[in-house]
Design a binder for these strands. Structure first.
Lengths: 345, 345
DNA sequence: CTGAAAGCGCTTACAG
DNA sequence: CTGAAAGCGCTTACAG
């Protein structure tokens, strides 16, 4: 019942703990014979090194922390999958925490992770996060930190992102290309960098095409949760205020789907009356009807890349040769589907 | 840069490590004055106990392990959310691993968690798991184990489940009630208990209503991944073999959505030509068109319940009073939507 | 090739 | 009220 220790093996074999330890780790200065005996006994006794002791000695836990705003979103669960699978390959375990888009929780969780002494931290910020001292805290402790998707530009650490501005520009340009004349935007909350960038991309596309920029056509997802409900809510408002709008670029697929549901209820046809482009390419978007034109965002790859970068930095820190921070931008793609008309020739 | 230890505090205050430790933990036999001094200094130095050392001494890690077949499924990501939120409340961290429906991986991951010396394990089995020695291994080590959703009846541990048989019975009964005459079933893989139970519920409903049971109407999701593709595949087969079928009870929403997509492609109307009931009530099912009639399965609650049970057992084991295993069955509900006709009077 | 010893940072039974 | 000491299980520099 009690776990087997090095001492148990040493006693049974009448050798020292030192030798047992070395034998198991294939040190060159242990005789082949001894190694054989030790390894065999370790196996039959089902010896497993006590991680707590190893961690204490080695000052590392082979564990990383991950903080995401939400888990139950297709994009984030894909990222998680990417991170975990990559971490496993390198022998790292992942502790996952969800900030629920709350700054308070996020701060507390970073603290938790730090006192758990994880070897590194991966984070995607909550919408509510405007103060970054908790992140600087990580860096000050000399722990590697990699941010992904929802980042803070101001923090000096590696970041895995997409070019939100460019992607949003392309989405808006597509609406223009198919002939939309009045293009609205449902944007995300005010703080997150990516909702700012998507908004700027939208605006730039308009201006580059000599469209007037009309602030009243920009609807903010007020609850800040990018939900189905917010899409419905904003669609209702839009219908009331601007029934001349013929195209909308929407911050997130889920919001777009909410909007489409609301339009359908009011007899407004997509894409005949209004063309819609979403963002993220959730699986759902390919099975609803009409299927949703959107920007594909590589979640799984983002997760993998984030871990890889963190891993490099953890190794570098261990070798006392800290790496410079790096910003990696992943490619996105416009996926044309039924919610937007075909391009005109 | 180097983390602050008890020793650092003791030296600065010219008292013993023992007293510092006791003061921080509010032992009654330390003077108020000393406590004050220690706590203040600990705060200014930003002291955080070294978890590795605490774990080693206390023989517990305040960490649990979680193994799920997939993360990127609405049902499972909801469960994960439930587990994490509950664990956080009790001061536990969660290490998450994904078995990818592979027995080999699952076994390896359980081993990993065990050698990481987590305090308890939460698991939902892979479809491929037919051998359970790795689970017995957990129990033999005296670690609490709680299974949820995809369980093995044979293992003696607590389980959080739904009554799959009853839920499937209700789903099938609903198809009968609305007038279906030829009812097919798309079932899950052969091994998992829940796909067996859902199949049995389907069969029993038929027999109780004096419908003949026709094995050729039962399609197995061969890939075993309960995917969109499998739904399409089986729908194609069904259309070829049995174009008289007017109702299908499908093992999982995602498969049902795949089937509906295929039917639409072939001009088969849901629910006019074929009525469909899914299983799980994924969010997606409420936004596709037609919306999908399904069985609501309480993922978030299942996660919460699973952690609560594990927590009780961890506490009990610590107090040397192991608890008897418990099977908790959560309620499900039939959610009637557009993919099935209204009931006849 | 083998082993005694120190030390990682903590907790707690025990002595005073 | 305070503290010396043992010990959790490991790793590794050092001596032989």
């Amino acid at each position: 019942m009690k776990p087997v220790t090095l001492k148990d093996i040493a006693e049974q074999l009448n050798i020292s703990i030192t030798t047992v330890s070395k034998a198991l780790k294939d040190y060159p200065d242990v005789s082949k014979k001894t190694k054989g005996l030790v390894k065999e006994l370790a196996k039959t006794l089902n010896y497993k090194p006590n991680t707590f002791a190893v961690n204490l000695r080695m000052k590392e836990s082979k564990t990383i922390g991950l903080v995401v705003p939400v888990i139950v979103h297709h994009f984030f669960s894909n990222i998680i999958k990417g991170i975990i699978s990559q971490a496993e390959k390198k022998g790292y375990l992942v502790i996952i925490l969800q900030s629920n888009e709350s700054y308070e929780l996020e701060k507390k969780q970073v603290d938790l992770l730090l006192s758990q002494r994880v070897d590194g931290i991966l984070i995607s910020l909550a919408n509510g996060t405007a103060d970054f001292s908790h992140l600087n805290g990580i860096i000050q402790q000399g722990k590697p930190l990699v941010m992904f998707d929802k980042i803070a530009k101001i923090i000096k650490c590696s970041k895995i992102i997409i070019d939100d501005r460019k992607a949003a520009y392309n989405a808006t340009q597509h609406l223009i290309d198919i002939g939309c004349k009045r293009i609205a935007h449902f944007r995300g909350a005010l703080l997150p960098q990516n909702s700012i960038d998507r908004f700027l991309g939208y605006k730039k596309a308009l201006l580059d095409n000599n469209f007037p920029y009309d602030p009243s056509l920009v609807y903010i997802c007020e609850l800040g949760d990018n939900s189905f409900e917010e899409g419905k809510e904003n669609a209702r408002k839009l219908l009331k205020d601007h029934n001349d709008v013929d195209g909308i670029f929407i911050n997130t697929d889920l919001v777009a789907i909410g909007a489409m549901t609301e339009f359908k209820k009011h007899g407004v046809k997509v894409p005949e009356d209004i063309n819609i482009v979403g963002f993220s390419n959730w699986f759902m978007s390919s099975v609803i009807s009409p299927t949703l034109t959107t920007i594909d965002q590589p979640g799984y790859k983002m997760g993998k890349t984030a871990f890889k970068q963190l891993y490099k930095e953890m190794k570098a820190i261990k070798n006392k040769k800290p790496l410079p921070s790096k910003i990696i931008t992943l490619e996105t793609a416009l996926i044309k589907r039924e919610s937007t008309k075909s391009e005109m020739e």
